[in-house]
């Protein structure tokens, strides 16, 4: 009897190990461990055993049952794993195929430059001021020290609507309007981006409409060295930490002294290349100390207050920074052009 049980165990485990799937395994379970199975059959003959032998044989029978059960369980686990494995293997995909595109647009490069500059100056305590594109002659010219017969008006041929209104030729009228609103009290710290218009035929370097961004600071004791320091911060932020600036005397009616500002060439680092026309320097903006007439006209006491202003063409900055060769690209909006500016820097 004892031997028969051992035999059954060996036989069952042998079958378990040879079973190929869960169904076979289940059949083995039923045939060996079921009520009509051989173990039960063997145990039926227990009545013939002595009282000492019975518990011993009972324990052995349980041992055999347990061994077969755990054999089956182990095998079952194994088979299940294999089944999963097989299923997953069948589900294999080619991970190198392209993903579902998430199509996003992006900022126009001019907005990109403007926001970069705005954010830099906001960080330095400036606010962003905006004004109308159609301006009064007064704000566009007269309040900026350009009376009606001023020779410099030649320099900026304009689109007039009536004798007194025109498309602004610069964003400076926003400065005049902002100063006026301040009612003679400083400090004023603004940055003014916007569209401006000049009577130019559109070609690779001219556009009848373009963007400007100007800055203005008015306060007590604003110095020219402050202008220089501010523009240095600006140049480094926009064109790289290694940049230097150079101020050259110039002339603008609304500033005195006036300077043009060059940044050391970011392409060649100052050694001279095509971008900087072999000079090592690239002109990027005009600036100066606010002309006392402009301060006075906007209600500031020029004895007490001083200020600086600077302004630049956004297209020019973008063309330099990104290497764009034709200003018309900014207004054609070719998606192949726009898509160049997806990358977030």
């Amino acid at each position: 009897m004892q031997e028969r049980l051992k035999e059954l165990q060996t036989e069952a485990l042998e079958k378990v190990s040879q079973s190929a799937n869960l169904k076979e395994l289940n059949d083995i379970r039923v045939s060996y461990l079921g009520k009509k199975g051989p173990i039960t059959e063997v145990l039926k003959g227990m009545g013939k055993l002595s009282a000492e032998e019975r518990p011993m044989m009972g324990a052995l029978a349980n041992e055999v049952r347990d061994a077969i059960t755990s054999g089956i369980e182990e095998k079952q686990k194994h088979l299940e794993e294999a089944a999963v494995h097989e299923k997953l293997a069948a589900e294999t995909i080619d991970v190198t195929l392209p993903g579902r595109p998430v199509k996003t647009g992006n900022h126009h490069p001019l907005t990109r430059i403007i926001e970069e500059i705005e954010d830099l100056f906001i960080g330095m305590g400036y606010t962003v001021a905006e004004g109308p594109e159609v301006e009064k002659d007064y704000y566009n010219f007269e309040a900026l020290n350009l009376p009606k017969d001023h020779p410099a008006r030649d320099m900026q041929d304009s689109f007039y609507i009536t004798e007194e209104t025109l498309l602004r030729t610069q964003t400076s009228p926003v400065q005049a309007r902002t100063m006026e609103k301040h009612d003679g009290k400083g400090p004023v710290k603004i940055i003014c981006p916007g569209k401006v218009f000049r009577r130019d035929n559109d070609d690779a370097t001219h556009s009848h409409q373009f963007m400007q961004i100007e800055g203005l600071v008015v306060g007590e004791n604003i110095r020219m060295t402050d202008l220089k320091g501010t523009l240095e911060v600006f140049a480094k932020k926009l064109f790289g930490e290694d940049r230097e600036i150079r101020m050259r005397p110039s002339f603008f009616p609304f500033t005195e002294p006036s300077v043009e500002v060059d940044v050391s060439c970011f392409k060649c680092g100052g050694k001279g290349c095509n971008i900087c026309k072999k000079t090592g320097w690239i002109e990027i903006l005009g600036s100066g100390m606010v002309h006392p007439n402009v301060l006075e006209m906007s209600g500031f006491d020029s004895k007490k207050y001083s200020g600086f202003a600077f302004g630049m063409g956004v297209e020019r900055i973008a063309m330099l920074k990104y290497g764009v060769e034709d200003i018309r690209h900014f207004y054609t909006n070719d998606v192949r052009f726009l898509n160049n500016f997806q990358v977030h820097e």
Partner: peptide, 15 residues
């Protein structure tokens, strides 16, 4: 010229 930044009362910068 030296390089300096404006001094005076701080102004909050914001949009």
């Amino acid at each position: 010229l030296a390089s300096t930044l404006p001094i005076g009362s701080a102004t909050p910068g914001h949009l």
